[in-house]
Amino acid sequence: MAERIALVTGAGRGLGAEIARTLAADGWTVAVNDLVEPSAQATVDAIRAQGGEAAAFAADVTDEDAVAGLVARITASLGPVTAVVANASGPQPEIPLEDLAWTDVLPHLEFFAKSPLLLAKAVLPGMKAAGGGRIVHIGSDLFERGDPGWSAYMAGKGAMLGLTRGWARELGRYGITVNLVAPGWIPVERHGTLTPEVEAGWQRQQAVQRMGIPADVAATVAFLVSDKAAFITGERIAVNGGQYLG
Protein backbone atom coordinates (compact mmCIF):
# COMPACT_ATOMS: atom_id res chain seq x y z
CA MET A 1 0.00 0.00 0.00
CA ALA A 2 1.35 3.39 -0.99
CA GLU A 3 -0.52 5.12 1.84
CA ARG A 4 0.34 3.93 5.36
CA ILE A 5 -2.14 5.75 7.56
CA ALA A 6 -3.46 3.67 10.47
CA LEU A 7 -6.38 4.53 12.73
CA VAL A 8 -6.31 2.87 16.15
CA THR A 9 -9.39 3.38 18.32
CA GLY A 10 -9.29 3.42 22.10
CA ALA A 11 -5.56 4.14 21.91
CA GLY A 12 -5.20 6.41 24.90
CA ARG A 13 -3.97 3.57 27.11
CA GLY A 14 -3.69 -0.19 27.42
CA LEU A 15 -3.64 -2.40 24.35
CA GLY A 16 -4.62 0.44 22.03
CA ALA A 17 -1.70 2.63 23.09
CA GLU A 18 0.76 -0.22 22.63
CA ILE A 19 -0.67 -1.05 19.21
CA ALA A 20 -0.38 2.60 18.14
CA ARG A 21 3.23 2.83 19.33
CA THR A 22 4.15 -0.41 17.56
CA LEU A 23 2.60 0.60 14.25
CA ALA A 24 4.37 3.96 14.41
CA ALA A 25 7.67 2.18 15.01
CA ASP A 26 6.94 0.14 11.86
CA GLY A 27 6.63 3.32 9.82
CA TRP A 28 2.89 3.92 9.89
CA THR A 29 1.51 7.39 10.47
CA VAL A 30 -0.95 6.74 13.28
CA ALA A 31 -4.24 8.49 13.93
CA VAL A 32 -4.62 7.95 17.67
CA ASN A 33 -8.25 7.93 18.72
CA ASP A 34 -9.69 8.08 22.20
CA LEU A 35 -12.87 9.46 23.69
CA VAL A 36 -11.01 12.44 25.17
CA GLU A 37 -8.17 14.47 23.68
CA PRO A 38 -5.67 14.32 26.60
CA SER A 39 -5.58 10.51 26.58
CA ALA A 40 -5.00 10.36 22.83
CA GLN A 41 -2.38 13.11 23.02
CA ALA A 42 -0.39 11.20 25.65
CA THR A 43 0.05 8.33 23.20
CA VAL A 44 0.93 10.75 20.40
CA ASP A 45 3.59 12.37 22.57
CA ALA A 46 5.14 8.97 23.32
CA ILE A 47 5.20 8.11 19.60
CA ARG A 48 6.78 11.41 18.64
CA ALA A 49 9.39 11.04 21.38
CA GLN A 50 10.51 7.85 19.61
CA GLY A 51 10.65 9.56 16.21
CA GLY A 52 7.31 8.34 14.92
CA GLU A 53 4.48 10.23 13.25
CA ALA A 54 1.08 10.50 14.89
CA ALA A 55 -1.80 12.85 15.61
CA ALA A 56 -4.61 12.77 18.17
CA PHE A 57 -8.27 12.59 17.20
CA ALA A 58 -10.88 12.55 19.95
CA ALA A 59 -14.25 11.00 19.02
CA ASP A 60 -16.93 8.65 20.28
CA VAL A 61 -16.57 5.70 17.91
CA THR A 62 -20.03 4.36 18.76
CA ASP A 63 -21.65 7.49 17.28
CA GLU A 64 -22.33 7.47 13.53
CA ASP A 65 -21.84 11.18 12.92
CA ALA A 66 -18.74 11.25 15.11
CA VAL A 67 -17.12 8.38 13.19
CA ALA A 68 -17.84 9.99 9.82
CA GLY A 69 -16.34 13.23 11.09
CA LEU A 70 -13.36 11.40 12.59
CA VAL A 71 -12.39 9.71 9.33
CA ALA A 72 -12.96 12.95 7.39
CA ARG A 73 -10.63 14.83 9.76
CA ILE A 74 -7.95 12.17 9.52
CA THR A 75 -8.15 12.09 5.73
CA ALA A 76 -7.86 15.87 5.50
CA SER A 77 -4.97 16.00 7.96
CA LEU A 78 -2.95 12.86 7.28
CA GLY A 79 -4.36 11.16 4.21
CA PRO A 80 -6.73 8.23 3.55
CA VAL A 81 -6.90 5.55 6.24
CA THR A 82 -5.56 2.27 4.88
CA ALA A 83 -5.51 0.34 8.16
CA VAL A 84 -8.05 0.51 10.95
CA VAL A 85 -7.74 -1.28 14.29
CA ALA A 86 -11.08 -1.49 16.12
CA ASN A 87 -9.90 -1.70 19.70
CA ALA A 88 -12.14 0.67 21.68
CA SER A 89 -14.23 -0.80 24.47
CA GLY A 90 -16.28 0.31 27.44
CA PRO A 91 -16.88 -0.94 30.99
CA GLN A 92 -16.80 -4.72 31.36
CA PRO A 93 -18.73 -5.69 34.50
CA GLU A 94 -19.22 -9.30 35.52
CA ILE A 95 -22.99 -9.93 35.65
CA PRO A 96 -24.66 -13.33 36.30
CA LEU A 97 -27.67 -14.28 34.21
CA GLU A 98 -30.11 -13.72 37.08
CA ASP A 99 -29.15 -10.05 37.13
CA LEU A 100 -28.52 -9.56 33.41
CA ALA A 101 -30.71 -7.16 31.45
CA TRP A 102 -30.77 -6.25 27.77
CA THR A 103 -29.42 -2.84 28.74
CA ASP A 104 -26.30 -4.62 30.03
CA VAL A 105 -25.78 -6.42 26.70
CA LEU A 106 -26.39 -3.44 24.44
CA PRO A 107 -23.26 -1.42 25.36
CA HIS A 108 -21.06 -4.34 24.33
CA LEU A 109 -22.82 -4.54 20.97
CA GLU A 110 -22.33 -0.79 20.59
CA PHE A 111 -18.56 -1.17 20.97
CA PHE A 112 -18.00 -4.54 19.32
CA ALA A 113 -20.55 -4.55 16.48
CA LYS A 114 -21.83 -1.02 15.83
CA SER A 115 -18.45 0.72 16.12
CA PRO A 116 -16.61 -1.70 13.77
CA LEU A 117 -19.47 -1.31 11.30
CA LEU A 118 -19.30 2.49 11.38
CA LEU A 119 -15.52 2.45 11.05
CA ALA A 120 -15.48 -0.02 8.15
CA LYS A 121 -18.08 1.92 6.18
CA ALA A 122 -16.25 5.21 6.78
CA VAL A 123 -12.82 3.97 5.65
CA LEU A 124 -13.99 1.71 2.81
CA PRO A 125 -14.06 4.35 0.04
CA GLY A 126 -10.53 5.44 0.83
CA MET A 127 -9.25 1.87 0.96
CA LYS A 128 -10.85 1.04 -2.38
CA ALA A 129 -9.31 4.15 -3.93
CA ALA A 130 -5.92 3.23 -2.49
CA GLY A 131 -6.12 -0.27 -3.97
CA GLY A 132 -6.31 -2.12 -0.66
CA GLY A 133 -6.41 -1.91 3.10
CA ARG A 134 -6.42 -3.71 6.41
CA ILE A 135 -9.18 -4.03 9.00
CA VAL A 136 -8.20 -5.62 12.31
CA HIS A 137 -10.68 -6.25 15.11
CA ILE A 138 -9.56 -6.78 18.68
CA GLY A 139 -11.73 -9.59 19.98
CA SER A 140 -11.24 -11.92 22.93
CA ASP A 141 -10.53 -15.61 23.40
CA LEU A 142 -13.23 -15.50 26.09
CA PHE A 143 -15.83 -15.98 23.33
CA GLU A 144 -14.51 -19.50 22.72
CA ARG A 145 -13.31 -20.21 26.26
CA GLY A 146 -16.45 -19.11 28.10
CA ASP A 147 -16.70 -17.88 31.67
CA PRO A 148 -19.64 -17.43 34.06
CA GLY A 149 -20.90 -13.87 34.36
CA TRP A 150 -19.40 -12.70 31.08
CA SER A 151 -22.15 -13.64 28.62
CA ALA A 152 -22.92 -10.02 27.64
CA TYR A 153 -19.27 -9.31 26.86
CA MET A 154 -18.94 -12.60 24.97
CA ALA A 155 -22.04 -11.80 22.91
CA GLY A 156 -20.40 -8.58 21.72
CA LYS A 157 -17.09 -10.23 20.93
CA GLY A 158 -18.89 -13.04 19.10
CA ALA A 159 -20.69 -10.50 16.94
CA MET A 160 -17.33 -8.97 16.08
CA LEU A 161 -16.05 -12.34 14.90
CA GLY A 162 -19.10 -12.74 12.67
CA LEU A 163 -18.49 -9.36 11.08
CA THR A 164 -14.85 -10.28 10.51
CA ARG A 165 -15.65 -13.44 8.59
CA GLY A 166 -18.46 -11.94 6.54
CA TRP A 167 -16.50 -8.85 5.52
CA ALA A 168 -13.42 -10.88 4.66
CA ARG A 169 -15.46 -12.62 1.99
CA GLU A 170 -16.88 -9.36 0.69
CA LEU A 171 -13.75 -7.22 0.61
CA GLY A 172 -10.97 -9.55 -0.48
CA ARG A 173 -11.58 -8.70 -4.14
CA TYR A 174 -10.54 -5.12 -3.36
CA GLY A 175 -7.27 -6.09 -1.70
CA ILE A 176 -8.79 -5.40 1.73
CA THR A 177 -8.20 -8.02 4.43
CA VAL A 178 -10.26 -8.38 7.60
CA ASN A 179 -8.93 -10.31 10.58
CA LEU A 180 -9.51 -10.58 14.32
CA VAL A 181 -6.92 -10.80 17.08
CA ALA A 182 -8.28 -12.59 20.16
CA PRO A 183 -6.14 -11.85 23.23
CA GLY A 184 -6.34 -13.89 26.36
CA TRP A 185 -6.05 -12.05 29.63
CA ILE A 186 -3.42 -9.38 29.02
CA PRO A 187 -3.11 -7.23 32.18
CA VAL A 188 -3.12 -3.48 31.54
CA GLU A 189 -3.54 -0.38 33.69
CA ARG A 190 -7.18 -0.99 34.57
CA HIS A 191 -6.33 -4.36 36.16
CA GLY A 192 -4.14 -2.75 38.81
CA THR A 193 -1.28 -4.60 40.50
CA LEU A 194 -1.46 -8.39 40.32
CA THR A 195 -0.42 -10.56 43.23
CA PRO A 196 2.13 -13.33 42.65
CA GLU A 197 -0.60 -15.86 43.52
CA VAL A 198 -2.90 -14.55 40.79
CA GLU A 199 -0.12 -14.60 38.21
CA ALA A 200 0.99 -18.11 39.16
CA GLY A 201 -2.58 -19.43 39.06
CA TRP A 202 -3.18 -17.99 35.61
CA GLN A 203 0.13 -19.19 34.19
CA ARG A 204 -0.63 -22.77 35.26
CA GLN A 205 -3.48 -22.72 32.73
CA GLN A 206 -1.19 -21.74 29.83
CA ALA A 207 1.29 -23.61 27.68
CA VAL A 208 3.63 -20.60 27.75
CA GLN A 209 4.54 -19.98 31.37
CA ARG A 210 4.41 -16.20 31.61
CA MET A 211 1.79 -13.47 31.65
CA GLY A 212 0.92 -11.99 28.29
CA ILE A 213 1.89 -8.38 27.69
CA PRO A 214 0.42 -5.71 25.39
CA ALA A 215 3.42 -6.03 23.07
CA ASP A 216 2.35 -9.61 22.25
CA VAL A 217 -0.96 -8.34 20.90
CA ALA A 218 0.59 -5.31 19.17
CA ALA A 219 3.11 -7.47 17.32
CA THR A 220 0.30 -9.64 15.95
CA VAL A 221 -1.63 -6.60 14.77
CA ALA A 222 1.51 -5.16 13.17
CA PHE A 223 1.94 -8.35 11.17
CA LEU A 224 -1.68 -8.41 10.03
CA VAL A 225 -1.55 -4.84 8.68
CA SER A 226 1.76 -5.46 6.90
CA ASP A 227 2.23 -6.49 3.29
CA LYS A 228 3.44 -9.88 4.57
CA ALA A 229 -0.14 -10.69 5.62
CA ALA A 230 -1.75 -9.77 2.30
CA PHE A 231 -2.99 -13.35 1.74
CA ILE A 232 -4.46 -13.78 5.23
CA THR A 233 -8.10 -12.81 5.76
CA GLY A 234 -11.12 -13.93 7.76
CA GLU A 235 -8.90 -15.33 10.47
CA ARG A 236 -9.16 -15.31 14.25
CA ILE A 237 -5.69 -15.36 15.81
CA ALA A 238 -5.56 -16.11 19.54
CA VAL A 239 -2.78 -14.44 21.51
CA ASN A 240 -3.05 -16.26 24.82
CA GLY A 241 0.04 -18.40 25.38
CA GLY A 242 -1.94 -21.53 24.62
CA GLN A 243 -4.36 -20.95 27.52
CA TYR A 244 -7.18 -22.09 25.27
CA LEU A 245 -6.75 -23.99 22.00
CA GLY A 246 -9.71 -23.89 19.67
Rank of each mutant, 00 (worst) to 15 (best):
R190C: 02
M154V: 07
D141Q: 14
Y174L: 04
M160H: 04
G126Q: 08
V136E: 03
L117G: 08
E144A: 14
T193H: 11
M154H: 00
G133S: 10
G184D: 08
G133Q: 06
P148K: 08
F143R: 12
G126N: 05
T193A: 15
V188L: 04
W150H: 05
S140Q: 09
T164M: 04
G132R: 08
N179W: 14
Y153C: 02
E189F: 11
A182R: 14
M160Q: 15
R169L: 14
L163C: 05
G131C: 10
A182P: 01
E170M: 05
G146S: 13
H137K: 01
A129I: 02
S115Q: 08
A129N: 10
I135A: 02
L180M: 13
V188E: 13
H137F: 15
T177M: 11
G133T: 13
R169Q: 14
L180P: 00
L142K: 07
P196G: 09
G132I: 10
E199C: 09
I186Q: 05
Y153T: 07
F143T: 15
K121D: 02
G156T: 02
H137V: 06
A129R: 12
G133N: 03
G133W: 02
E199M: 13
V178G: 05
R173Q: 14
T193S: 14
P187F: 04
G156I: 00
G149V: 07
M154L: 06
G126L: 12
M127F: 07
G156D: 00
L163I: 10
R190S: 12
I135T: 06
L118N: 05
P196Q: 12
I176F: 08
L180A: 15
R134N: 08
R165N: 02
S151P: 00
Y174K: 07
G166L: 05
A155W: 01
A122Q: 03
T193V: 15
G133C: 06
A129T: 08
G166Q: 11
M154F: 00
L163D: 00
K114Q: 13
Y174M: 01
K121I: 10
N179T: 14
W150M: 13
P183G: 11
E189T: 14
G132N: 11
V136H: 06
A159H: 08
L118A: 06
A168G: 15
A182I: 03
G156S: 06
M160A: 06
G175K: 09
L118I: 06
D141K: 11
S140T: 13
E189L: 11
G131N: 04
G146P: 11
W185E: 03
A130V: 06
L194E: 05
K121T: 14
I186G: 02
M154I: 10
V181A: 06
G131K: 09
E170V: 12
T195G: 12
A168V: 11
A129E: 11
G192E: 11
G139A: 10
W150E: 03
L119H: 06
G156A: 03
L118Q: 05
G184F: 03
Y153D: 01
A120P: 02
W185R: 08
A152W: 00
I176K: 12
L180H: 01
L194G: 02
L161Q: 12
R145A: 15
A152N: 03
M154W: 00
A120M: 12
D147E: 15
G162L: 03
